[in-house]
Amino acid sequence: MTDSREGLLSINLQSIADNYQDLVTRVAGGARCGAVVKADAYGLGMSHVAPTLYRQGCRDFFVATQAEGESLRDALGDDVPIVILTGVRAGAELECARAGLMPTLFTLELLRHWVGTCARAGLEAPCAVKVDSGMTRLGLSAEEFEHLLRDRELLRLADIRMLLSHLACADEPQHAQNIRQLRSFKKAGQRLRTLCPNIQLSLANSSGIFLGKDYHFDIVRPGSALYGINPVPGTPNPMRPTVTLSLPIVQKRHLSQEQSVGYGATQRMAAGSWLAVARGGYADGIMRAQGGRGHGWACGRKLPIVGRISMDSTTFDISALSAKERESLQSIEILNQDLTVDEVAQYADTIGYEVLTSLGHRYFRRYI
Rank of each mutant, 00 (worst) to 15 (best):
G91P: 06
Q181M: 13
Y263I: 10
R366Q: 15
D338S: 07
G7Y: 08
R5N: 05
A270P: 15
A289P: 00
A75Y: 05
S202R: 08
S10D: 09
M46L: 14
M239K: 13
K213Y: 02
G208V: 02
C196W: 11
L226C: 02
A17K: 03
L163P: 08
P241F: 13
Y263D: 14
G228H: 02
E172F: 12
Y20R: 10
D79C: 06
E153V: 05
N336Y: 02
A323N: 11
D349H: 09
V261S: 01
G272L: 02
R98P: 07
L329V: 00
S207L: 01
I84W: 03
V243A: 10
L154I: 10
V232R: 15
F210T: 04
F61I: 12
D3H: 00
I199T: 02
R73S: 02
A283M: 12
D40H: 12
L203D: 12
V243D: 11
P236G: 04
D159E: 12
A270T: 08
A92H: 01
Q259R: 15
V243C: 09
R112D: 10
G45H: 01
P248Y: 06
H175F: 09
M239P: 12
A204L: 10
G91I: 07
E109T: 14
L138T: 11
I199L: 14
C96G: 00
H166T: 09
G264T: 01
F217E: 04
G228N: 09
S133A: 15
D74E: 14
D159T: 10
S10R: 15
L123S: 03
R221P: 10
W274D: 12
V261P: 10
C33H: 11
L195Y: 04
D22H: 15
S202L: 04
D214F: 03
E172H: 13
A50F: 04
A348T: 06
D18Y: 02
F145A: 06
D284L: 14
C127K: 03
E109A: 14
R221K: 12
Y227M: 07
R98D: 05
P231D: 09
L110P: 03
S184N: 13
A320D: 13
I249L: 02
C58Y: 08
H166R: 07
P197G: 01
Q190A: 15
I84H: 11
I179F: 07
E6P: 08
S319M: 01
D317L: 03
L101H: 03
R55F: 06
V344H: 10
T235A: 15
S328N: 11
L9M: 04
Q337V: 02
V115D: 06
D171W: 05
L23S: 02
I179A: 14
I249C: 01
L226N: 06
I229D: 00
L44P: 06
I84Y: 07
Q200F: 03
G77S: 12
T25L: 12
T266I: 15
D18W: 05
K324Q: 15
G228S: 08
G285L: 11
L163A: 00
L247D: 07
R253C: 12
C96F: 00
S165H: 00
G228M: 10
G272Q: 05
A204P: 06
K187G: 07
L247N: 04
G294H: 10
R253T: 14
